[in-house]
Design a protein around this nucleic acid. Structure first.
Length: 191
DNA sequence: ACACCGATTATCT
DNA sequence: GATAATCGGTGTA
């Protein structure tokens, strides 16, 4: 069952991030359909969050997509070589986003294996936001597209998933001062 | 097991 | 000129 873009137009970005663990992330790129079970997300809470690209209301060519109404993608290049995928959330003008950090491949495992390793054995858990984009074939061409599209979308799992969700501080945001300690990362734990 | 480092570019100072 | 929401390889243990 697909999740409609309007679902992400709430300003409760932290709760949205938690709710996205266990959803399925799908891509249909170059005719190749892949998906994965989302196991890790992070909330970036708008202009008051020092870790967010939109902190202080920063509005650049890169960040402007975050200010649109929720339910679209925000893809950007990190460390000059990795694409990172976020789902923009919140009402228009509120630049919230949820970073998708890790998935378990479901559909198109062979395609994902090829994209990630060009032959070597695929690790079970696609962990790390750069690898998520690489696995699903996502790049800057997929920035700012609606999750109501047929390129990138989210689905609810058929059945409730096993396990629990734990929260932790976010990764790689040491520059954010006290905000680096906020428990805005959500991770699925098998039981 | 863990520490270090190079790759590579948009963005900001 | 420095930094960054990272990753994979290499080195030491």
């Amino acid at each position: 069952m697909r999740i409609a873009s309007v679902y992400f137009q709430s300003d409760e970005v932290v709760e949205l991030a938690r709710s996205m663990v266990g959803m399925q992330l799908h891509s249909l790129i170059n005719g190749q359909h892949c998906s994965g079970f989302i196991t890790e997300t992070e909330a970036y809470a708008g202009i008051n969050d020092r870790a967010s690209h939109a902190f202080g209301g920063r509005l650049t060519k890169r960040t402007k997509v975050m200010y649109k109404a929720g339910g679209i993608t925000y893809v950007y290049l990190c460390y000059g070589m990795h694409y990172l995928l976020n789902i923009v959330t919140g009402s228009e003008g509120n630049p919230h986003a949820v970073l998708i950090r890790a998935i378990l491949p479901l559909v198109g495992k062979e395609i994902i294996q090829h994209r990630l390793t060009k032959e070597k054995l695929l690790s079970i858990h696609t962990d790390g936001p750069g690898k998520v984009c690489k696995a699903l074939g996502i790049n800057m061409l997929h920035n700012g597209i609606s999750i109501d599209s047929h390129e990138v979308w989210l689905e609810m799992a058929d059945k409730p998933f096993e396990g629990t969700i734990l929260s932790y501080p976010r990764i790689g945001v040491h520059y954010a001062g006290a905000d680096a300690l906020l428990p805005y990362r959500f991770s699925w734990k098998e039981t």
